[in-house]
Design a protein around this nucleic acid. Sequence first.
DNA 1: GACCTATATTCCTTCGATCGCATACAGGTT
DNA 2: AACCTGTATGCGATCGAAGGAATATAGGTC
Lengths: 122, 122
Amino acid sequence: MDLINIYECLCDRTRLRIVNLLQQGPLCVCHLQAVLGEPQVKVSKHLGYLKNHGMVSVSREGNWRIYRIAAKPTPALTANLACLQDCATENPIFQRDLARLRKLDLTCAPVAAKRGSTKRCC
Amino acid sequence: MDLINIYECLCDRTRLRIVNLLQQGPLCVCHLQAVLGEPQVKVSKHLGYLKNHGMVSVSREGNWRIYRIAAKPTPALTANLACLQDCATENPIFQRDLARLRKLDLTCAPVAAKRGSTKRCC
DNA sequence: GACCTATATTCCTTCGATCGCATACAGGTT
DNA sequence: AACCTGTATGCGATCGAAGGAATATAGGTC
């Protein structure tokens, strides 16, 4: 990922919130949806955008897609993600999102998937 | 300047190159034009964009407008500009721009304006 | 196989960003 | 005042991005 690509990924509010959340670790789409409070189609499209531009990757876990920050970030990406994480501590929206994330029942996917047996995720 | 604003300013190649150049110090429009090799209207508009979004400020020096990075950057801006400068060292386009900048006759504006007497800038 | 859940995709609309041309404007020079 | 230089702005065209509704897909459960 080169610089322009990175900034293009981060210049949308929804994507920025997604990346902020993914910095805490992998998440399935419905958890992101729940935290963001945005419609499924919107979240899915922005995740697709981030994936196509190399900022995140996906894996499958039964019915869920687990998104995470790209495994081999370029130096520029590493630097910018670190910078973002720094800046996020001062940002009320980001902090609210992180608080919501903590309140979610994370025994859901992908953890629950490993246990089998959960019918519904979110 | 909040994060989104910063990323919006930086997500265009021309603006990114401008900001990279301005990190070296104030510059007049025609110098930017010369280094970037872009039409006047394009440079001027992107400078206007950066100004309206609070990333740069302008001053007048005779016939020239001198642009510089905003005087009182927010913490987020400071962090991102530092990050950008780091990343710029690995970027061939940025390095080429900086090389071109060094080759310019900087006895022009605003230096020349202080001396008076120069008819043409670029 | 019928149905549910999680997610992606298609189609369409809307909106904003970028660009170039032409022109305006402001200060300096003659 | 006429003219030049440096820079901004208005207008119109184009292009892509974002959003939503509806639909498709794929795996799981009964």
